[in-house]
């Protein structure tokens, strides 16, 4: 088999150092994405640094009135946390709409953010894919691509980011805290964590090599209702055709771009007094249809208008 080595440190700095020091090393969290991809020979780590014993599995109140979620908190725990359920219900709704109970029991906050695309061609090593083999071409472009991006796609890649949790975090204006290879701590917004594909779809995040997500930081919840709406082919255990997170007047879309998509034009329209339908269309006006995924544009517009109405029943349709 393709050999790799394995270690399970208990110290955060040691874990970061271990990945930074070994070319081709990767963190292993719940493994629900990484191990699948290793079995298909798509991920080929030389060394696995298991982060499950790091002391990063707690959820704490922050002085600002938000929450600091350790990156190793499982999706199940996070969704069930009483504070999350009462103050950040959009996050609970988003998480429980993803995967299955078994997956959520293993999946972690850090791993969920960094899960890779579900593009079927990415999963099929017999096909060209710029994300797997930069420069080999994109099979999805002319292929069966009903689920591809309507925002921010490039000629190199039209894949979407499949996380539900990340869409809620984006709408909440959440951030991540990391430890970089030199042991320093840095913060960035979830909205800035992932990249658009451009010419380099194999580069998916703005994290440096060996950089570990240590926590997700939730700011205090803004006023207004919270709604997560996900459309999917079956009632459970299916990735989204599209999803919408609404937090007061903050809106993000899922499964429509290479990253969770903050709907800034919708937000601006709302701020300018637009109706829910108008506000939804403000963002969707910039969406691009590539032949087979056009339904997503109407779908997201309808879901957004509906979710905005549900979040703030007083708001005009």
């Amino acid at each position: 088999m393709r050999p790799f080595t394995y270690e399970r440190p208990t110290d955060v700095a040691a874990a970061v150092k271990a990945v930074a020091a070994t070319p081709g090393a990767k963190f292993l969290a719940g493994g629900t994405n990484l191990l699948d991809l290793m079995k298909l020979d798509i991920e080929q780590p030389t060394h696995l640094v298991d982060v499950n014993r790091l002391p990063l599995a707690g959820i704490e109140d922050t002085p600002q009135g938000g929450l600091r979620i350790g990156s190793m908190v499982t999706n199940s725990h996070l969704a069930a946390d009483a504070r999350v359920r009462s103050r950040y219900s959009v996050l609970t709704q988003a998480i429980v709409s993803g995967g299955s109970g078994q997956l959520r029991n293993k999946a972690t906050a850090g791993g969920n953010l960094l899960q890779r695309t579900r593009c079927a061609y990415f999963y099929d090593p017999s096909k060209p894919c710029n994300k797997r083999h930069p420069g080999s071409g994109c099979s999805a472009m002319e292929g069966l691509n009903r689920n591809s991006a309507i925002f921010g796609a490039s000629d190199a890649c039209i894949a979407t980011h499949p996380s539900d949790m990340a869409v809620a975090l984006t709408a909440l204006g959440a951030g991540v805290e990391t430890m970089t290879a030199d042991g320093a701590t840095r913060s960035l917004a979830v909205a800035d964590l992932h990249r658009l594909p451009g010419d380099t779809p194999h580069l998916e995040t703005n994290l440096a090599a060996g950089e570990l997500i240590t926590a997700v930081i939730l700011p205090p919840a803004p006023p207004g209702g919270q709604v997560y709406r996900k459309a999917r082919d079956r009632a459970s255990y299916a990735g989204g055709l599209a999803s919408v997170a609404v937090v007061g007047n903050q809106v993000a879309f899922g499964a429509v771009a290479h990253k969770p998509w903050r709907a800034e034009k919708t937000e601006a329209a709302l701020a300018g007094g637009a109706s829910a339908v108008e506000a939804a269309h403000a963002e969707l006006a910039g969406a691009q249809d590539n032949g087979k995924n056009g339904f997503k544009i109407a779908l997201v517009a309808r879901m957004t208008a509906d979710a905005l109405g549900q979040a703030s029943p007083g708001r005009g349709a």
């Binding site: 079956r234 009632a235 255990y237």
Partner: peptide
Amino acid sequence: GYLVPTHAD
């Protein structure tokens, strides 16, 4: 990718 019904369906 090949979706058979789940309990929730």
